[in-house]
């Protein structure tokens, strides 16, 4: 028991000191070519969304993410599928047939997902252009995209619209399950 308590204290202490940055990764895209986090950084905020083909809320979220992508030129949206290899075809077909402009990556072994403690999709991270995690959220209900937009505008240095300030007011986005402002 002493060991466990000691370990816990050490980890919690370290977690206070540690940076909240996205771990570097190299994951294959649709064409099987590896894409690294480093290659994505430096141009603007990035939404990283872990999803699976069996996850209906993940699919509900996609049109909203596409809308954000079209609205903010410097934004990138990276979808990371955690489907098993045998279900990857379905995930690929789903994305390709809907003409989304996302960067689609695959993490069938959950190598990145497990490093970020992603277990139940959807799980979304917003990172700045340096790779720091500014927000993470588990689940998706319509309205959550307005919270995402609030952080993106902040990262892009765009002033709030009068009806916005979603983080404070959050009119219809009442249902977000987790809000981690770091």
């Amino acid at each position: 028991m002493k060991i466990i308590v000691l370990t816990l204290i050490l980890i919690l202490t370290l977690s206070l000191l540690a940076a909240d940055s996205m771990p570097d990764f190299r994951l294959p895209n649709m064409a099987g070519e590896n894409v690294s986090l480093t290659s994505l950084l430096g141009e603007g905020p990035i939404i990283i969304d872990f999803w699976a083909d069996y996850c209906q809320p993940c699919k509900v979220a996609m049109p909203y993410l596409q809308e954000l992508l079209e609205k903010y030129e410097d934004l990138k949206v990276v979808l990371i599928s955690i489907d098993a290899p045998r279900a990857q075809n379905r995930a690929k077909n789903y994305l390709r047939s809907r003409n989304y402009d996302f960067i689609s990556l695959f993490d069938p072994e959950r190598s990145l997902a497990s490093r970020l403690n992603v277990s139940n999709p959807p799980h979304t991270f917003i990172i700045d252009q340096e790779g720091e995690i500014v927000y993470s959220h588990v689940g998706f209900e319509p309205g959550t995209e307005k919270v995402y937009e609030g952080y993106i505008r902040e990262l892009l240095g765009i002033e709030d619209e009068p009806e916005r300030s979603q983080k404070e007011h959050c009119g219809s986005c009442t249902d977000h399950n987790e809000e981690e402002e770091r």
């Binding site: 980890i11 370290l14 977690s15 000191l17 540690a18 940076a19 909240d20 970020l116 403690n117």
Partner: peptide, 10 residues
């Protein structure tokens, strides 16, 4: 070397 340290847990 905590400047380069990443830690997360659940």
């Amino acid at each position: 070397g905590q400047n380069n340290l990443q830690i997360n847990g659940i």
